[in-house]
Design a protein around this nucleic acid. Structure first.
Ligand SMILES: [Mn+2]
Ligand SMILES: [Mn+2]
Ligand SMILES: [Zn+2]
Ligand SMILES: [Zn+2]
Lengths: 164, 164
DNA sequence: ATACTAAACGATAATCATTATCGTTTTCAT
DNA sequence: ATGAAAACGATAATGATTATCGTTTAGTAT
């Protein structure tokens, strides 16, 4: 697993900006690495990190996440529920990855591939805008929910009539 | 101006769902139409709409914006400052338009052109995800801020060195 | 026109995520 | 070992949004 190496790399990033790697910060990063698929809120991180460092305070979690965001180690994203969520950047990535949000089951999945190459070239050229980062989220129906809808819609002889 | 016609169309959308078009709702929509370029928070809308309907309450503004969002007349967006912003959909558009956010001056400008056609085809095919809508925001440096940076960076005679 | 009912409203209290404050602890260079 | 700065934990404050509730309005049936 590259967990150890990524931790080391993050340590270096902190040190290079002369930030200390406290036990609280290390535990927080560990939680983020161990839950990379998820999109945790500050409260979520707080509850998970308390297993490793029970004495940690919620304020410290917020402070740490804020710091990691400034260092561009995590992205702070917002899916429209009332909370910010913190998303570790993919290994080696220097920009935010994309998301698919299912409007039926709420599932959030990732697209690691950068789909915006050509689009960004066009935007930079035609809008004279120097792009530094992006946020791209698709809202729709995930494959699982599509299948469930299908098996529900077995209208007599005609099997699936319309799958939305 | 198409303002009148768009108001009529929105009236029809409300009525078709058997919602009443109250004076408060009408005043709110008017404010949105008159400030289409902007990205107003609920509070912003509240202050503007009070000119037209001084007795309106903030709760009603929130309720109206929520309703317009459900009817897909406005998009509720979040640029990372602590507030939701409400963005009227472009005339005839059935999806959210894109945004350019300048990380230096904070300016937000619009991209009405739908840049994601091919990307969405690919996502639907390769991720088996049925796309209903999207959110795309680019973060970077707007043309104005780039020009200011340029004229500042005249390294030869070196006038001013760095601003900010 | 009157009376009834549900929708909508205004005022304001409650909620809840996030931020600020402050006294204490830790880290690290001297 | 000493002192200053950085971090921390607890908790109060803030501020956007939502919920509540009594009143008003709009639409419909008498
Ligand atoms: Mn993600
Ligand atoms: Mn817009
Ligand atoms: Zn789903
Ligand atoms: Zn700018």
């Amino acid at each position: 697993m590259a967990v150890k190496e990524r931790m080391d790399y993050i340590k270096k990033q902190l040190h290079s900006q002369s930030y200390k790697l406290t036990p609280q910060r290390e535990a927080t990063v560990e939680v983020l690495l161990e839950n990379e698929e998820d999109h945790l809120s500050a409260e979520d991180v707080y509850l998970l990190v308390k297993d490793k460092a029970p004495e940690i305070g919620l304020a410290t979690v917020y402070r740490t996440l804020e710091l990691l965001n400034e260092l561009e180690i995590v992205d702070k994203i917002n899916f429209g529920d009332g909370v910010s969520r913190y998303d570790l950047r993919k290994e080696g990535a220097n920009h935010s990855h994309h998301h698919l949000v299912c409007i039926q089951c709420g599932d959030v999945s990732e697209i690691e591939e950068d789909l915006l190459g050509e689009v960004e070239v066009k935007v930079e050229r035609e809008w004279q805008f120097k792009i530094k980062d992006h946020r791209l989220t698709f809202h729709g129906v995930c494959s699982k929910c599509q299948r469930e809808k299908d098996s529900t819609n077995e209208e007599v002889g005609r099997q699936t009539v319309d799958q939305l």
